[in-house]
Design a protein around this nucleic acid. Sequence first.
DNA 1: GCTGAAACGTCCTCCAC
DNA 2: GTGGAGGACGTTTCAGC
Lengths: 163, 163
Amino acid sequence: MSQLDKTDILILNQIQENARITHAELAKAVNLSTTPCYNRIKAMEEKGLIKQQVTLLEAEKLGLTLNVFIHVTLEKQVEEALQSFEEAISDRPEVMECYLMTGDEDYLLRVVVPNMKALEKFILQYLSKIPCVASIRSSFALKQVRYKTALPLPEQGLTLHLD
Amino acid sequence: MSQLDKTDILILNQIQENARITHAELAKAVNLSTTPCYNRIKAMEEKGLIKQQVTLLEAEKLGLTLNVFIHVTLEKQVEEALQSFEEAISDRPEVMECYLMTGDEDYLLRVVVPNMKALEKFILQYLSKIPCVASIRSSFALKQVRYKTALPLPEQGLTLHLD
DNA sequence: GCTGAAACGTCCTCCAC
DNA sequence: GTGGAGGACGTTTCAGC
């Protein structure tokens, strides 16, 4: 068990928004010098708190204009069926997110495609052919109002839940 | 109007996965030298294709274990109501994603919170108090099967849709 | 438009305080 | 935790193909 203090949270919030911030800028932003910044980041990396640094692209400008939410129900909710569905889904680049859900339907997918034809192809030629898929229901996003990757960290610091 | 060739797509795919890749590594990965890599990235930045470089954190280890999808319906779908709802929602750090949807319900939110108490607080003290909100329906993710930020780019290159 | 190398600037890392 | 300093590295530019 370990703790993160306010400064750690500040650092995480900075790097969440900007992966290329330099230690010097970061130090300035959190009112510290570069050395403790460096040490804190290193410690948090070793704890496995930092997953990945990625570049976000402009989907619209790249012609990826359709955001579709697809609800999938399986025929039987046995462990084996779930696992094979999850594996099948993870191969497809269109599938941005996938959640196993409570309620009537089993999975919720967010899929990004350039147009209806690509969606049709994904659903008919791929999704519907995965064994155990019983029903598929799509709903469309008219507009992406908000999309962010920065997690809501508590401002006061927190106790870590490490394995 | 401009085009992206296969090499541009390769570069974008590399930086989508790794924001800190160096031009030297990138050059190696796409079979080029550093100069054209540098020039191509610069050109794509100027076209506004690259939005942001961010750090992804491990939500579970930070105690942010609840992913909740909240469906919101407004009393009336007039422009004004939509706009004020969207503004209100954009202030809240818990709201990771928000989409204006087709179908019976108006908005779909993905909210991340540490526990049920925080969810309750968000819904009762905040969401339900936004004017024009008629109904709220939540469903829970039992498991985040997949979450990625890398867009599915066509491998053969593409024509850009610039303003 | 690409290559390769060279120069420049900056960042990381360590150490003494 | 501070501040400075060395070495390493990444970025950027340039001549040449």
